[in-house]
């Protein structure tokens, strides 16, 4: 496990080094308060404390499609997890106006019709609010690179730097905790790590699947299981969790 400890720590160290370099570059510059706050996102993490003692925000984005270069966000849903519990009162849920028509295929999936989003605010405004909701908490998402890509597009466009928060990926946690070791990715049985497959495995009932908020809740409940699983193996520290589920950028 010695190597693992290093890896968990190393990932955070790298992120912190980049963060310091960013702060150095931006020193003295006038920044949006939300951008300024985001720069401190890594300050309060304690690697050897239980992961459970940290605050997490579990997010899910619904988009017009699966191509991050072409497609746009139509809704953002997120729950906060504190002390290992999902807070039903600290919820972020908002539709975004993607500024263009929603493809029929995606309407079929998330049931958001054009009328609903005409009154909605543009995605970047919604996203800046979400940034306020996120604060310095650890971001958790199912297949996080996808969500982070969309967020970073706004971050870079607005502030000129990417999201600073630590990001955990539940797909990655699934791969390292549930699937057999597969360093070369030859088995590719990622289907077992799909949201539906995991919800079924853990017998998590997803109240409203394919809404941003419903999927965020499902992800939060699955994340809860992973946290418990690690604790039961005596690997409940944040360091272990980063090692196993930190986003591979």
């Amino acid at each position: 496990m010695a190597e693992g400890f290093q890896t968990g720590g190393l990932r955070l160290s790298l992120a912190r080094a980049r963060n310091r370099w960013l702060r150095f570059r931006l020193r003295g510059r006038e920044l949006d308060p939300r951008a300024r706050a985001n720069l401190g996102a890594l300050d309060n993490l304690r690697l050897d404390e239980p992961a459970r003692s940290h605050r997490f925000v579990v997010v899910d984005l619904e988009t017009t499609g699966l191509d991050p270069n072409k497609d746009r966000v139509v809704s953002v849903g997120a729950f906060r997890v504190v002390g290992g519990r999902v807070r039903l009162g600290e919820v972020f849920s908002e539709l975004c106006n993607p500024g263009r028509d929603i493809p029929v295929e995606s309407i079929k999936v998330h049931a958001i019709v054009p009328d609903m989003i005409h009154q909605a605010r543009p995605a970047w405004e919604v996203f800046l609010d979400f940034l306020g909701f996120l604060g310095r908490d650890i971001l958790v998402a199912h297949f996080a690179p996808f969500d982070v890509y969309f967020m970073n597009r706004v971050m870079k466009g607005q502030f000129g730097f990417p999201l600073q928060n630590l990001v955990l990926d539940t797909v990655e946690l699934c791969r390292t905790l549930l699937l057999k070791p597969d360093p070369y990715g030859v088995y590719l049985d990622f289907k077992k790590c799909g949201l539906d497959a995991l919800a079924e495995l853990f017998e998590v009932e997803v109240p409203e699947r394919h809404t941003a908020l419903g999927d965020a809740l499902a992800t939060a409940l699955i994340f809860q299981r992973f946290m418990q699983k690690l604790e039961s193996q005596g690997r409940g520290s944040l360091r272990e969790m980063i090692m196993l589920g930190g986003m591979v950028a």
């Binding site: 504190v82 290992g84 519990r85 999902v86 807070r87 039903l88 009162g89 809740l217 939060a220 409940l221 809860q224 299981r225 418990q228 039961s232």
Partner: peptide
């Protein structure tokens, strides 16, 4: 009331 609730998991 629901907004005050939390979801917990007990193995």
């Amino acid at each position: 009331v629901v907004a005050h609730m939390e979801i917990a998991y007990f193995p």
